[in-house]
Design a protein around this nucleic acid. Sequence first.
DNA 1: ACCTGAACACCGTTCAAGT
DNA 2: ACCTGAACACCGTTCAAGT
Lengths: 239, 239
Amino acid sequence: MMTHKRFSPPRSRRERPAKPALTRQGIIDAALAILREEGLHKVTMRRIAEALDTGPASLYVYVRNTTDLHVQILDALLAAATSPLTVEGTWRDRLKQVLMRYTSVLFNYPEIARMTLTMHPSGPNYLALLEQLLALLKEGGMPDREAAWVVDLLLLYATATAVEQSTRQSSSVAADEDSVLVAAITTIDASVYPHIAQLGNELFSGSGPDRFAWGIDVLLSGALSTPRAATEQEKTDAI
Amino acid sequence: MMTHKRFSPPRSRRERPAKPALTRQGIIDAALAILREEGLHKVTMRRIAEALDTGPASLYVYVRNTTDLHVQILDALLAAATSPLTVEGTWRDRLKQVLMRYTSVLFNYPEIARMTLTMHPSGPNYLALLEQLLALLKEGGMPDREAAWVVDLLLLYATATAVEQSTRQSSSVAADEDSVLVAAITTIDASVYPHIAQLGNELFSGSGPDRFAWGIDVLLSGALSTPRAATEQEKTDAI
DNA sequence: ACCTGAACACCGTTCAAGT
DNA sequence: ACCTGAACACCGTTCAAGT
């Protein structure tokens, strides 16, 4: 049956060791593969070790802990969000495209989105995103002081939206909660909650993308018309 | 030694049963106590069962699963965020107070804040908060259509800020990441990232509360000056 | 109906011992 | 220096058996 194996030429050291040397990058790659196929909740030390045909303890030579691993994963994913722009149009249109691309990356990995809110990335891909946004804000005539703060607001908004939407989409529990909220609001006691009752379904109107785009316009228009108060230092300087 | 026990009067059924009957509310109360004293990561089925002097399996009579339990906890905490206002001032000032009180509740429980982003609460306390905000927006002259959307934006902003700040404060890992980001930005290559280099430390300027208050003003001013586009339905109606 | 012990199928991390 | 088996100290959830 297996005798033909005898005739295959001998390899340099062994026949298909099948077990590549452990490296930090190898661990991250394995983690990304599991993330894609099984979700972040399966990206555990034990599961990665299994994929690399070793024990969990071996990973700790290259990875400090689980958080360390997650930071690396986020950075790798962010690469997909910073390719050159494909849309012509006003600076606002292009800014929306950048942010929507950023959200759509996070959208595909709910748990990563949740993580991003907690730990600011600082890798080259995140910096590239920041640079892109700042360039567009300058083009739109946003003063430096306001640009510095609103870029944070825009990223926070995009990230939070991704977290909210993505988990809502992937878990049926969240969908149930939504219908509970819709039911609570449409049948609400108008004498206790008059304003909610008056708006009613208006609170749920519009599509996700429409609301997101409107939110960005709100942030941009608001920032353009809301100067930051002078800091204590600046007040002193002005004397 | 223990003979004096003989002389103590007999209780109705037993001497100090010490084990109160299991109820849903009892489980939630125990969970809240553990949350306060040990953090959400300790609010596990096993830990609660231990506190109630029973086995984890017994809890499943009253609680569907861990998420179910977390939803209840969130609702209970939200009660603290909706007491009557204490501040006089413009509608904007009072709206800021409401949102800052909401964030400060979440601030004390980082893990609950993270949860809130994922699953919209629909309990009476959440509705009261919504009602309060809508009343203030109306007072500020916000049209209904925009008020319905911006209230969501305000709550999303407040929640996301709470998540970001609170985990940053409680974990030293996050602090490390921050200094990594600061270092990355202050020593950045100006030929690759000109706009980031130009703003430099301006990106980190200001205190948390100042930035938060500015953000709310941005959202309010932006919403007041950014009408929502007409929906398809409304376009049809207009003919 | 309510409660329980025990089990199943998992986690992250450490550490002494090997190579 | 790198790798590992085994252990420690945990998880959520289910289920058959008891009261």
